[in-house]
């Protein structure tokens, strides 16, 4: 298995040497709940790579294994075969080194916005006063300074996701995983937050993996899009997004955008799916 992976290694498209994050031929199965003891394949031979400062989207329908992929990358689940490399190291301890943001904000209701945001720093052993100071510094850029001492259950869904992202990004991690971060929000709030997210992450040199079922979200945010098909979780296409950065106002209705959207729709429908 390992001797084959070298031949199939994906070149880092940004060309900055070794990719930050690399997933090599990962397969993951679940023992099926249905009688018969069959196993369900959730991820099949999934490979992808993300360079430093690159934003990659994994696009696919619900239930195609996207979240499982992120859990494997985060180190929460162990793949049946294949490997995940951090800065080229397949043995790197990934738990606690990869930032992970979920669709649910998962904010602790008994902690204020700042107390929630500083959680990762606190868990990393940074003294509370210092963690607090650093969280407050960045809260301003996240548009959270006015609600810094409010409790999360008093905030709107959009604000709560900002807090969740602040918490995920405050500890310095080279990889950020976003699991449908705006999936539970209304369309208008979602569009606002997408724009804001692009700005916030613009200057960082993190490798970002966004999982989404929203084609426009993938195109607005990502440099590259992997198309994933269910139910057995395969990558069926890879598309480089040829759109200017930062994305200009009204890009979503431009001809270029629509052409790329059409390409992705076709890939999702399986028409171009077999070409790789």
């Amino acid at each position: 298995m390992n001797s084959q992976t070298a031949a199939l290694e994906i070149q880092n498209p940004t060309g900055t040497g070794r990719p930050r994050l690399e997933v090599r031929r990962v397969t993951r199965t679940w023992a099926s709940m249905s009688p018969g003891g069959r196993t369900d394949v959730v991820l099949q031979d999934v490979s992808l790579s993300v360079g430093a400062g690159e934003f990659v989207a994994v696009l696919g329908p619900s239930g195609c294994g996207k979240s499982t992929l992120l859990n494997v990358i985060a180190g929460l689940q162990v793949p049946d075969s294949g490997e995940v490399l951090l800065d080229g190291d397949p043995h790197a301890q990934r738990i606690g080194r990869v930032a992970h943001m979920h669709q649910r904000d998962l904010l602790l209701p008994w902690r204020t916005v700042i107390e929630n945001a500083r959680l990762g720093l606190e868990l990393g052993g940074i003294p509370v006063a210092e963690a607090d100071r650093r969280a407050r510094e960045v809260a301003d850029r996240f548009g959270l300074s006015k609600v810094a001492d409010s409790y999360p259950w008093k905030l709107s869904g959009g604000m709560r996701q900002r807090v969740a992202l602040l918490r995920a990004t405050l500890p310095d991690r080279s990889v950020l995983l976003l699991d449908e971060p705006f999936g539970a929000l209304d369309a208008i709030t979602r569009a606002d937050l997408q724009k804001w997210l692009a700005e916030v992450l613009n200057r960082s040199n993190r490798a970002v993996v966004l999982v989404t079922h929203d084609i426009e979200e993938a195109l607005i945010l990502a440099d590259r899009v992997y198309v994933m098909a269910g139910p057995s979780g395969r990558i069926v296409d890879e598309v480089s997004v040829a759109l200017p950065r930062p994305r200009p106002e009204g890009i979503a209705t431009s001809e270029l955008f629509v052409a790329q959207k059409r390409r992705l729709l076709a890939a999702l429908a399986g028409q171009e799916g077999m070409e790789r």
Partner: peptide, 20 residues
């Protein structure tokens, strides 16, 4: 999911117990 979130932030078992 909360426990997983704590783990990805690098929490020890003891920290999960005390803070979650």
């Amino acid at each position: 999911e909360m426990v997983d979130m704590f783990r990805t932030l690098g929490a020890t078992k003891r920290q999960v117990f005390l803070k979650l």
